[in-house]
Computed example of a mutant assay.
Amino acid sequence: ASVADEAVAAITAEGGRAVAVVAPVGSTETAQALVAAAVENFGGLDILVTNAGVLRDKSLLKMTDEDFDLVINVHLRGTFTCVREAYAYFKENNVQGRIIAIGSPTGQRGNFGQTNYAAAKAGIVGMVRTWAMEMKKAGVTANAVIPVAATAMTKTVPYFAAAVEADERGEAMPDFFRRTLGFGTAEDVAGLIAFLASEEAAGITGQAIGVGGDRLQLWSHPEAVESEYRDGGWS
């Protein structure tokens, strides 16, 4: 609740409008509460950004069922339930809305100790590509953003800790982080989110777009790199 209240205060202090719903992301009930709060307080819903996330990093043999289920529930199931609820509202009210799901480089290529997180983030991109097909007729776009940024979550990753701490002190991150790793601040990601939510991005859907620090990337759709054929099939 305190984190949500801080976010609302930061937005309203800048002249914006915001409300918070404090609930565990994952369940259908939470998704319904989030959409209902948006409609009740703002008169409608146009954009959904699914950004809730947790980490429970452990190597495969040390990862428990609970470690796996929690991360899958928040990231993957939470994205599914929230998008389903938002899209139902879009369809019912003829809104050409925007779905922006947050992925991760880990979901694109894996990472040591992150079986659960990699599975969830890869699944999010798979869902986005599917939704882009299903939502096209309704004029709704669905895209995944693959960010690398200093947050409370990435601060727990030792490799990024120095950069996150520098940002918290108001210091510039070293070029190695901003350019080589494409790691920056949340503000570096915000522009892409705003663009994908805008009218200018009406023709962009089903994409996975990376952003962080000074770097912007377009991730490819998986394609077979080689095909061979054998009459009668393969033994």
Rank of each mutant, 00 (worst) to 15 (best):
A202T: 06
T185V: 08
A194H: 12
R230N: 09
Q207F: 08
Y159L: 13
V71Y: 03
F80D: 03
F112D: 05
N116C: 11
L70T: 06
E92M: 10
E168L: 11
P105R: 02
I72D: 03
S235H: 09
T180E: 11
A37Y: 02
S104H: 03
F160C: 08
V3I: 15
I193F: 08
E6A: 13
T180V: 15
D69W: 07
N93M: 02
K121N: 01
V35K: 09
F42L: 11
V140W: 04
K91N: 10
R215W: 03
G78V: 02
A9Q: 06
A161Q: 12
G170F: 11
E66R: 00
E226Y: 00
A202S: 08
N94K: 14
S59E: 15
A23S: 08
M135Y: 09
E40I: 02
A101P: 03
E199N: 12
S220A: 12
T115Q: 08
V49Y: 10
R109T: 11
R178G: 15
E171F: 10
V35W: 02
T185N: 07
E223Y: 00
A208I: 05
A152S: 14
M153N: 14
Y117A: 04
K91R: 11
A37V: 04
T185D: 00
T130N: 15
A142K: 03
S220I: 12
V54T: 13
A194D: 05
I47M: 04
K62M: 09
E134I: 13
R56E: 14
N41L: 08
R179F: 10
S220H: 14
V225G: 05
T28C: 11
Y89M: 08
A20F: 13
R179A: 11
R169V: 05
Y159F: 07
I72K: 01
V164Y: 01
G26M: 02
D175K: 14
A150P: 00
Y87D: 15
Y159E: 15
A122L: 04
N143Y: 02
D175S: 13
A10Q: 14
F177Y: 15
L218W: 12
L218M: 12
G78H: 03
F112G: 07
T180R: 13
A31T: 00
A31H: 03
G184R: 00
A88N: 13
F90Q: 08
A7W: 00
V8K: 09
G182V: 02
I99M: 06
A119I: 04
A36H: 02
E171S: 07
W131D: 07
I100D: 04
T28L: 11
D175W: 07
V49C: 11
S59M: 14
A38Y: 04
L218I: 08
V83S: 08
L45G: 09
A208W: 01
E171K: 07
E92Q: 09
A23H: 10
A118Q: 05
G53M: 06
A13M: 13
P147L: 02
M173L: 12
L60R: 15
D67V: 08
S198I: 05
A122T: 02
N93W: 03
V49I: 13
P158H: 07
A18I: 03
